[in-house]
Nucleic acid binder design. Sequence first.
DNA 1: CTATAAACATGAATTCCTTTCATAATTATA
DNA 2: TATAATTATGAAAGGAATTCATGTTTATAG
Lengths: 313, 313
Amino acid sequence: MFIEIRHLRSLQAISKSRSLADAAQQLHISQSALSHQIKVLENYFETPLFFRGRKPLKLTPAGERMVGLAENILPQIAHAEYELKRISGGELGRLHITIECHACFEWLMGTLGNYRKDWPDIEVDLRMGMSFDAISALAQGDIDLVISSDPITTDGICFEPLFPYEGRLVVDPEHALARKTFVQPSDLADQTLITYPVPRNKLDIFQHFLTPEGVEPKAVRHVELTAMILQLVASKRGVAVLPDWVLCESTISGQLCSLPLGAQGLHGMLYAAVRKSDTHLPFIQDFISLASLAVTTNGAPLSTGTQCTKIGG
Amino acid sequence: MFIEIRHLRSLQAISKSRSLADAAQQLHISQSALSHQIKVLENYFETPLFFRGRKPLKLTPAGERMVGLAENILPQIAHAEYELKRISGGELGRLHITIECHACFEWLMGTLGNYRKDWPDIEVDLRMGMSFDAISALAQGDIDLVISSDPITTDGICFEPLFPYEGRLVVDPEHALARKTFVQPSDLADQTLITYPVPRNKLDIFQHFLTPEGVEPKAVRHVELTAMILQLVASKRGVAVLPDWVLCESTISGQLCSLPLGAQGLHGMLYAAVRKSDTHLPFIQDFISLASLAVTTNGAPLSTGTQCTKIGG
DNA sequence: CTATAAACATGAATTCCTTTCATAATTATA
DNA sequence: TATAATTATGAAAGGAATTCATGTTTATAG
């Protein structure tokens, strides 16, 4: 690899000039410098690059080959430099998101739709399948943002609060628990609990409600899709705990009841985790702004006590 | 334009390495040099190119963009360098040919067919339409070889002899002149002469036969294609002067007679003109060898006195 | 949690290489 | 043939990348 960028620029200038001297002037270098440059190239490749002593300067086929190279390459480099400047300016970038909580899918899709309109040059993507250790994937640069409900202090990472939520028990309207004002841990001991297929320590219902009281449900069933969970509950196959934003008119058109976990309810906060080095980027900040408004704009969550909603296909 | 080739090589090495130190080793430079290089890039573009302090080194999106650039560009440069070496080695090249004499088309096509087999990587082309000043086009590098019958001393150009030829008068078998052993200039004073559409000083018949004797044909008619000239002569529309290689069995299947111009015949030599700087190139030398054998291999010329041959479509 | 190792950063000095300057040689044009 | 224009060349200068030596930061093990 002998050719340098400056050689390509030189050849390009020469091909557009009547003489080496003209080309040198265009390049803002001395005629001598250009002559030396060409000599070096010609010595290395053992072939002349232009015909000497012709009034309109003419390149040899070897020279033309090199100009061809220049005209392929120089624009590519110019374009890459332009894009790198845009990347540092935050106009261009990558936003690969992972969700630690499956239910976030419900509001995230709507948010991403709006976000894409604001930031057409940001490569937005939702990466499932790395939720097992999303935060370290974030720290390592595999992804750029994690939607999470438990902030852990990892250095280089910061957790921006998005909005509070309430985890509520969902049952069918004819269920025995449907008549209660709130559920106690022991109420679930004889129930089939339907959850997302994630480790128990990632589930509020175990972490902050059942496990502290030593209660174990009769059975636990793993289902991936929220809509499927709701259908299973509606058809009396079990009960589930879902965040309030899922339980709103826009996603449910059949009959379901939801009620608080414990007298105070099971409250949490949702966060967007990003690398500290990315917090200044406008397209990151704007995503966080949009996301923090997601739930109230997509549809009001169920905030009252016992309440029935519809479910459907 | 800030990026240099070495930056691209560095980024590419980094992307394939576990650490800067490893990459530096691959590049045969010190770790310090690489670190400085990256710092300069990062300062210029105002964005980090890789995540620091992660065990498996990971590039940022900006870094990835630059690797993408490298992987587009480096192979292109490598390939161009390879081709330039081949150009200087005479394996790859350009052979743009111009013919000053139209009749050369007849044997040249056959020669080029064989030549292309020997030199698949030489860009062979026949450029018509610059015959008006072919030699200076050659000197200026617009073309690479001229088939010519009059060598002029131009510096930088040399004329390699190919083969001798004889210009002969072609008439139809019932023509009055067909019975003569040879023609004299005055014999043509009452004839219609069919020639290629080129200036008279490029035509042997005028330059070396008629003009010195002050003879002017009854009429001169310009026709471009050799086959058409032969047909016109056969149908008694005039007479023509053509080099002997045209008048051989392989190109003529109808009835035509040819006879010498003057008692000694009008003899000439065909040359290949090339730039002196190209004479060493094997693909030029080989073309000249092939061309010099063209006429005797394509078909024996008419060498006997008055002779009749066939003509046809 | 400290120690040790590994990886990266930094400043000064060096070395390498491009460019310039001054001028020679070559080529074109009047 | 003379003059102008163009390219080539050698030595010196200038700049920039690399190295060296060392400091700082981050990971891994005991």
